[in-house]
Amino acid sequence: MLAEYMQQIETLGLNLFFAAIFFFIGMAIHDVLKQGNVPKFGRYIVWLVLFLGCAGFIAKGIIQMTWEGAGIG
């Protein structure tokens, strides 16, 4: 039974790994911004860039799921 779902388990594990990586990157950026006394405008720009990277990753996953569901990819 486990062999039947191996690809789904690998996909889920990879997605959880990327979510953890984004979390740790966010924590590291928060620490650097806090210790560097970065102005608020700079902090907003940094968080915007981080959010857009995360949103792009999520959009890629959604697009991939819809294409695979439709039989395109």
Rank of each mutant, 00 (worst) to 15 (best):
E4I: 13
E4A: 12
E4S: 15
Y5H: 11
Y5L: 14
M6S: 15
M6E: 14
Q7G: 06
Q8W: 07
Q8C: 08
I9D: 04
I9P: 01
E10K: 11
E10I: 13
T11M: 13
T11G: 10
T11I: 09
T11Y: 12
L12R: 10
L12G: 14
L12V: 10
G13P: 02
N15I: 14
N15H: 13
F17Y: 08
F17L: 09
F18D: 01
F18L: 06
F18R: 01
A19V: 11
A20N: 06
A20H: 04
I21D: 01
I21E: 01
I21M: 01
F22N: 01
F22G: 02
F23K: 12
F24I: 03
F24R: 07
F24P: 01
I25H: 00
I25S: 02
M27S: 03
M27T: 06
A28P: 00
I29Y: 02
I29H: 02
I29M: 05
H30F: 11
H30M: 07
H30C: 05
D31T: 12
V32H: 04
L33F: 06
L33S: 04
K34S: 06
Q35H: 06
Q35D: 04
Q35E: 01
Q35G: 00
G36W: 10
G36E: 09
G36S: 12
